[in-house]
Design a protein around this nucleic acid. Sequence first.
DNA 1: CGAAATAAGGATAACACATATCCTTAATCT
DNA 2: AGATTAAGGATATGTGTTATCCTTATTTCG
Lengths: 162, 162
Amino acid sequence: MILKSQVEWALHCCAILSGLPEGRYLSTKALAELHGLPKEYLSKALQSLSQAGLVLTTLGPSGGYRLAKAPSELTFLEIVEAVEGSGRTFVCNNIRANNPCRPQGYCESGPCAIARIMWEADEAWRAKLRSVTLADLGEILAQDIPADIWNGTFEWVLKRAG
Amino acid sequence: MILKSQVEWALHCCAILSGLPEGRYLSTKALAELHGLPKEYLSKALQSLSQAGLVLTTLGPSGGYRLAKAPSELTFLEIVEAVEGSGRTFVCNNIRANNPCRPQGYCESGPCAIARIMWEADEAWRAKLRSVTLADLGEILAQDIPADIWNGTFEWVLKRAG
DNA sequence: CGAAATAAGGATAACACATATCCTTAATCT
DNA sequence: AGATTAAGGATATGTGTTATCCTTATTTCG
């Protein structure tokens, strides 16, 4: 059970977009170059973000993407779910209903106990992702990344942002 | 990102095995019938449990599986990882290393900040699964399942347990 | 107005992995 | 000796991810 690589791409792209000055846009081409990713396929991930309303777009030259909200209002969970979907990782096929000992036509009262426990674990995962915003990530990155690389990347991005 | 259905099967099988009297074994055939599952393929899930040391097996007629530990010592996480593997759901491909602004030969100090956050969420998921044992599940099931079905199933199992 | 650049999205192929079945082997019980 | 079982190898089959290509509509700029 592994998350799509598009989740990783979307998170990195949002991290870049969160550093973009108000009102400017960054293209798929620039984001793909910056991360060494196939432009056409990365485009699908960005479209997912757009469909989820997390980013805004403009067309034409100098077009591209920007965040639809402040970084402090955009959580990891929103980004992950935009790309990966919001379904649970554990799917209950209700195999208890195949028990030959059960009376004909017997109907369960609620979801299977095993499913409930697995879904609680899913929710713990989601709760953690919901608690981290792009602004939190920005603070961590500012400490992690050497100032020269940080600034160099920022200039590189601004040169290409429409 | 969906867990294998074998995870569901393994959990249900372990739930049954946890009700088995000391020293008795239940066969793949019986477990497959009870849950309405393909015997040959369910066998693969049970082999995973065996390889992980969670269940013990015997050969020959009256052979089959029993738990290797007390239900109170066997966690959901162990069962899930036996079938699904213990790898993380988020794989970091270190795409930050493709940043064209970075100096040649520059080497990262540690794992990517995005990966660290995603891995914390994974750990929250694992922590929840680690906190629930088969004994806990047994208590919940005893309350969920009507007594007649519970007892009927128990008899059905005992009739087939070697 | 016309050319270039861009996002959006449909079609399709390649690939990996989950699912499923079949068969052989070795061990165990009656 | 014969029946039953777990273990595991080999081999399909199906589904979802990854990836590429192409068309369309929109916007910017000369």
